[in-house]
Nucleic acid binder design. Structure first.
Lengths: 204, 204
DNA sequence: GGTTAAATGGACCGTACGGTCCAAAAATGG
DNA sequence: CCATTTTTGGACCGTACGGTCCATTTAACC
C-alpha cells in the first residue's frame, strides 16, 4: 500500500516484483481462516510468496497488514452484498438469500472461515482500538445494506409500514453473526436453514 | 484434575497447597477474556497463582487446562440457565431475560468477554477436534434449556402449538451468539435491546 | 521423628516469534 | 552501459513461547 503510493508519483529503479493486491488477498485468506493471533509471520510470507524484507517494505507490520485486510474485506463484501441486493427478485428475497448463504457455509467441505469481520470482533476487537474501529465501520456498512433492503421491502409492502429499518437492519446483522458462529460450532446446514426461516418471521 | 483423582484414592505426603477449582476458575477467566491463543502460560500462572511445576502437575498442559475450562464453563452456565428458567415468571419471560442479559453486556464498563463457548467456536473449534467436541456439547446443552422453555411456553399457550421446539431453540441460540458478537463489535446496549424485541417476534 | 509421597521453585530446553539490517542483485531511465 | 533506485535473500536481533526436569522442601502417616 505504502509502496504503491510511493511508486505512483515518480519511480526509477526496480519495479515491484509482486502484485500488492494479490498479496493482500492471500494474506486476507490466511487471517480469515486462522485469525490474527494464530497466524504467524511465516504463514503470511508463505501464502503471499514474499520475503521478509519485501513484506516489511510493503506492509509495515503484521498488524498494519491485518488492518489493511479488514478494510479490503469490508469493501469487497459490502460491494458483493449490494450486488446481491440489486439482482435479487425482491428485497426480502435478498435478505433470505443473504442469511442462507451464511448458513450454507456449513455445507462446504473445507474449514469454516466464517466472516473475517465477525471473527475479528470476537477475537481481537477488544484489545486494539484501531482494529475495533475497522470492525465497527464494517458492521455499519453491512447494516447499511440491510437497512436499504428493509426500506425497499417496506415500500413494496413486503413488511409492515411501521417497521423500523434501522433496528431491523441491526437484527439481521445480529442474525448473520449468530449463524456464522453456529456454523463454526458445528451445526448442520439444513438445521441452520430452518433457523433462517424462523429468523425471517421476525420481519413482518 | 489429575491430582485430585490421584489424591482421592489414598494419599500420604504433602497435600495440595491451592484449590484446583479456584485455580480453574481463575484460568477460565483469563481464557474467557483473551481467548486461547492470546493467553500465554505466564498469564495463566499469574492468574492462578501457581508455579510452572504445580501447573503442569495439576493440569497437564495449556490445552488440557483449556478443555477443562470449557467443561466447567458449560456446566456452570447451563446450570445458571436452568435456574433462570425455574425462577422466571414465564417461559417466554425467561427467554427474553436470557437474550437481554447477553445484550446488556454492552452496558458493562470493563472489557467484553462474550461467551467462552461462542468465542471458542469462533477462534479455535476449527483447528482441534477435542475442543470442537466441547463446543458442540455445550451448544447442545444450551439449546436444550431453550427447548425446554419453548415446550413450556407452548403448553401455556404463549406460542403457537405448531411451533417446532427444536428449531426455535436453535434459533434462540443463534440469536444469543449473534448478540454476543454484536456486543463485541461495539453496538450500544440500548440498540441491542431493541434487537432482542425484534428477535422475540419470531417466536409467535 | 523417621519415612514416604507429593508439591514446590527455578534452572533449563529447543523453538519460534515479530522485527531489523545490510550487502548484493536487478531493472528501469538516461 | 552507466547511474540510480528499489527489491531481494538471508543473517541476525532479543524475547517469549510451551514444556521438561530435578533437587529441595513440605506435610501427613506410622
Amino acid at each position: 500500500m505504502d509502496c504503491t503510493v510511493q511508486n505512483a508519483g515518480m519511480q526509477t529503479g526496480r519495479p515491484l516484483e509482486f502484485d500488492p493486491q494479490l498479496a493482500l488477498d492471500a494474506a486476507m485468506g490466511v487471517f480469515w481462516q486462522r485469525g490474527f493471533e494464530a497466524t504467524s509471520l511465516s504463514d503470511l510470507l508463505a501464502a503471499m510468496g514474499l520475503s521478509k524484507s519485501s513484506f516489511y517494505n510493503a506492509f509495515g507490520s503484521k498488524q498494519q497488514l491485518f488492518e489493511a485486510c479488514l478494510v479490503r474485506f469490508r469493501g469487497r463484501h459490502v460491494e458483493r452484498m449490494r450486488e446481491m441486493l440489486r439482482s435479487a427478485a425482491s428485497a426480502l428475497a435478498f435478505v433470505r438469500e443473504m442469511l442462507l448463504t451464511n448458513a450454507r457455509e456449513a455445507r462446504e467441505p473445507g474449514p469454516r472461515r466464517g466472516c473475517l469481520i465477525m471473527n475479528t470482533a470476537t477475537e481481537f476487537a477488544g484489545r486494539d482500538a484501531a482494529v475495533a474501529a475497522c470492525v465497527a465501520d464494517a458492521a455499519r456498512d453491512f447494516a447499511g445494506v440491510f437497512r436499504t433492503a428493509i426500506e425497499m421491502a417496506r415500500e413494496h409492502g413486503e413488511i409492515p409500514r411501521e417497521a423500523d429499518p434501522e433496528v431491523l437492519a441491526r437484527y439481521l446483522l445480529t442474525t448473520m453473526a449468530g449463524l456464522r458462529t453456529m456454523v463454526k460450532a458445528g451445526l448442520p446446514a439444513d438445521e441452520l436453514e430452518k433457523v433462517v426461516e424462523v429468523a425471517m418471521g421476525a420481519l413482518h
